[in-house]
């Protein structure tokens, strides 16, 4: 039993994900409250050098050929053993395609409590989780004995989790990783796109409020008039109304345009995390309480269909 905070580092193909640094920053805050150390847990194969900029007191490095790239079964086995042996005060995972495949399973396997979607910790070691599409926050004591926590971005800056000094790295034992039920067969590269929305200066974004495929034309017309590119949130892409290359959000692209013009997008956290680097966000939505208005600089409370054609005409005349 220790007061240390473990952070399970996420990386893919030699690239450490931003959420790892966000979690190191969160762990630092939490470790002050528990008077423990920040320990980065790195699973990989010949990957020790990934740890060089971690803002951690120590790195536990687990090396195994089956840990070279993420697979749920191998990560679960390796971490189950480590956590039961060390019994840290908390283990932080990303609420991501990697962390979410592991944390819940370990909670059930080890009988340890799990806090999901945590955004930040208070100075009294309380967690604050973000639920209901960002509309509700839930606060509570960090559960005992070891709290498993999945973290969402937004509460800490990734830069706070980086250090110019490399932390000490200790190799840690890896259990036998045999008879794995999940193995990586290959990576499939993203489909090539006609445009790279992460580089476009003016984005016309549509969400669920666009209602059907035909209405995408309205957004297209506005984009053409103003010289921008149409992109979308997850519900629109899942319907097949726009290609995946136009997806803005947690599982799509992060964007940083001069103007992000959001039409009929409520602003779920998975979308918002990908647009906060925009210079100016302008949002049109019928719901005055839509979370998008909390990140937008300018807002319009209006049905997009009442506005979009008039706006397109006004833009054309102004040119």
């Amino acid at each position: 039993m220790s007061q240390d905070i473990y952070v399970v580092i996420e990386h893919l193909r030699g690239q450490v994900a931003d959420i790892s640094y966000t979690m190191l920053a969160a762990a630092r805050e939490l470790s002050r409250a528990t008077s423990g150390k920040v320990i980065a847990v790195l699973l990989g194969h010949n990957a020790k050098n990934l740890a060089r900029d971690f803002a951690a007191d120590q790195v536990l490095y687990l090396d195994h050929a089956s840990l070279a790239e993420f697979t749920s079964d191998a990560y679960q086995k390796a971490l189950a053993e480590l956590i039961s042996k060390d019994q840290p005060r908390a283990v932080l995972f990303g609420n991501t395609s990697i962390g979410a495949d592991v944390a819940s399973v370990l909670s059930m396997r080890l009988g340890l409590p799990l806090v999901n979607s945590c955004r930040s910790f208070t100075s009294e070691a309380k967690f604050i989780s973000q639920i209901c599409g960002g509309k509700i926050m839930a606060e509570g004591e960090l559960p005992s004995p070891t709290a498993l926590v999945t973290m969402v971005p937004g509460g800490y800056q990734p830069d706070q989790g980086k250090s110019v000094e490399s932390p000490p790295v200790t190799e840690s034992a890896v259990p036998a990783l045999e008879a794995l039920r999940v193995t990586l067969s290959k990576y499939i590269e993203p489909e090539s796109a006609d445009v790279d929305i992460s580089k476009e200066p003016l984005l016309i974004a549509v969400g669920r409020g666009i209602q059907n495929k035909d209405n995408i034309e309205l957004a297209d017309a506005l984009a053409q008039a103003i010289g921008g590119v149409v992109c979308a949130s997850r519900p629109v892409i899942d319907q097949g109304w726009l290609p995946t290359s136009r997806l803005v959000g947690k599982s799509g692209k992060h964007v940083k345009p001069k103007i992000y013009f959001a039409m009929g997008i409520s602003g779920a956290p998975e979308h918002v995390e990908a647009i906060t680097q925009s210079d100016t966000i302008i949002a049109v939505n019928t719901d005055p309480r839509a979370p998008i208005f909390n990140v937008a600089k300018y807002g319009v409370e209006m049905d997009i269909f009442e506005l979009v054609e008039t706006l397109t005409e006004t833009v054309k005349q102004a040119k």
Binding site: L184, K186, P190
Partner: peptide, 9 residues
């Protein structure tokens, strides 16, 4: 993220 897909067996 970013449209990358892993094929898992």
């Amino acid at each position: 993220p970013g449209g990358l897909i892993a094929e898992m067996e």
